[in-house]
Write a protein that binds this DNA or RNA. Sequence first.
DNA 1: ACCCTTCGTCGAAGCGCTTCGAAAGTCCTG
DNA 2: CAGGACTTTCGAAGCGCTTCGACGAAGGGT
Lengths: 339, 339
Amino acid sequence: MVTITDVARHAGVAPSTVSYVLSGKRAISSTTRQRVLSSIRVLGYHPHAGARSLASNRSNVIALVLPLRSGMHLPVLMQFAIAVVTTARQYDHDVLLVTADEGPDGLRRVAASAMVDAIVLMDVELNDTRVPLLRELDRPSVLIGFPAEPDGLTCVDLDFFQAGAACVEHLASLGHKDLALLGAPPAVYERGTGFAQRTRAGFLDATDRLGLSGIAIACEEETDQVAASVHTLLTRHPEVTGLVVHNEAAVASIMVALAAHGRRVPDDLSVVAICPDEVAERTEPTLSSVLIPAEEVGAQSVTLLMRKLDGEIVPDASLLAPRLTVRGSTAALPAAHGG
Amino acid sequence: MVTITDVARHAGVAPSTVSYVLSGKRAISSTTRQRVLSSIRVLGYHPHAGARSLASNRSNVIALVLPLRSGMHLPVLMQFAIAVVTTARQYDHDVLLVTADEGPDGLRRVAASAMVDAIVLMDVELNDTRVPLLRELDRPSVLIGFPAEPDGLTCVDLDFFQAGAACVEHLASLGHKDLALLGAPPAVYERGTGFAQRTRAGFLDATDRLGLSGIAIACEEETDQVAASVHTLLTRHPEVTGLVVHNEAAVASIMVALAAHGRRVPDDLSVVAICPDEVAERTEPTLSSVLIPAEEVGAQSVTLLMRKLDGEIVPDASLLAPRLTVRGSTAALPAAHGG
DNA sequence: ACCCTTCGTCGAAGCGCTTCGAAAGTCCTG
DNA sequence: CAGGACTTTCGAAGCGCTTCGACGAAGGGT
């Protein structure tokens, strides 16, 4: 192994000088710096991470904590993770992947052993058991999602309230007056995952505000139950012409169920989904949708974390604006509608 | 921060004694051990990871390297990742997530800086640029997937050859004689990702061996192109009654396209897929399938890695046997078939 | 010519841990 | 009861790095 002493000897300087060249914490003359850098290159020197973290109290590693319930939609989780890693690297940090199945102890361990400098919590729930722990740990942290009491915590997420509203506004602009929301499974609402509720609130608020009729119902993920939900909705509320779907897993089944009911999309019924682009583009017709900007959320959370590590004060809540992409599943309501 | 010296003082022993209690590398009397352990608990001591890695040359961290092309199916990747983390924890190791977008340098960096003891490479391709680097690094490693020249490398994967064969055998056992394989997109075959080719080889070998007719064609992932492929297949080869699908992303579209052609599954056509269970269970009818045992592969790779870290010799190739689950998409060929 | 800065570099201490050799204590054996 | 063989614990060195104080050399003002 090549050590800083080897580099120093090769360059004819003191080890501390090499350290200062690398960290830039003191001025080093240009000629010396060049000599040191070239020695580093020649010898293929890489600082020993452990030694560095021992001496400097900084590991340059952040923890990325996966949610407790892996019921969460995996591809989106993965997109988050990739964005977090990529962004962290831009700040010269690495990422330690921590699962919650050790319980909160895993978090405590990586923090207390000085393995990580800071923490990103993914897919935070309203009553997340990891959150109290986070408060007692002294490490900077950022949450993706919102817990019940986010005071003093830094949280990042898509603005689901706005997302729900954006869907309503889009449908309203096309002339639709009778809207429905097919949301997450009932269990998700009960569990109190914030995003489902916030979407529903945004949906209801917007329909109210615009003087439209809006029905919000939960929706399971399994094909047959989806069919049942759709059946119930369409028979009880045949007047509905605009449908908002906030349930990635059920999207495909819902489209099938609508077809089975003889409702053509978008001719008879316009559909807007809140889901990743890839899901929206894999249906027939493609879905107008509000995407979950996983990359943006991941990148933003790391950026905030780095600012906190630098001692900056950052805003408590960062809500990323929804972006609605119009595709093939929404169309204007025909002028003469039976009503 | 609580250090080993604090613990030693509290327990009335030398720091080295505490260290030996923790590592078990020397015998410590039961009474002393109890005293030390209780001090550790009382003080809430966690060893400093950096100091430990500096002194012992072991970081107890392994690198998990994501594939270069994130085109790979993300949920499966995530399942791998979770399994790797969970298993690593059982061996008291943590996992550093490394993306390949820094190029091979990222790998070199984490290895050379002693940040990780060993490396797991996910989704290895036939001509993977990371593989030569792995050979020059001295760290133990395990690959998930097979490169073109796996000599001397430890590789783990589903046995795709057997998987292709298993699908054929299942269909054959139901009396089907004319089979087809809808595989990965052409680009995947060209790129040389081993698993696609191995499945095809297994499929063709088995049809050959059993004296069946077998047609293997590639298949894109987009809905309209899938429809075109299915159309071509069914019109050119109307005799086909058994279909093997090895393309997760296209599964749903294929089912739709078959229906559009008036082919009922499984009445007119039996379908077996090679895909994760969740995909197989979300179609109508549910799909008989060979699953990609992501958890098993992830766990197995870590287990092998740990054995290598302990200096054991492990087998070069670990092929996990396919397991076929019969669901609703396969049925016996009616005795009298127009042929 | 002198003192006072400023700049660039060096040397040494110390981060918290592991590990090796040795010391102290215990127990047999002859 | 001396001497060997263990057992259990200690002390100190050292892992590779950062950082702080200090020092010599230049430069500026008087």
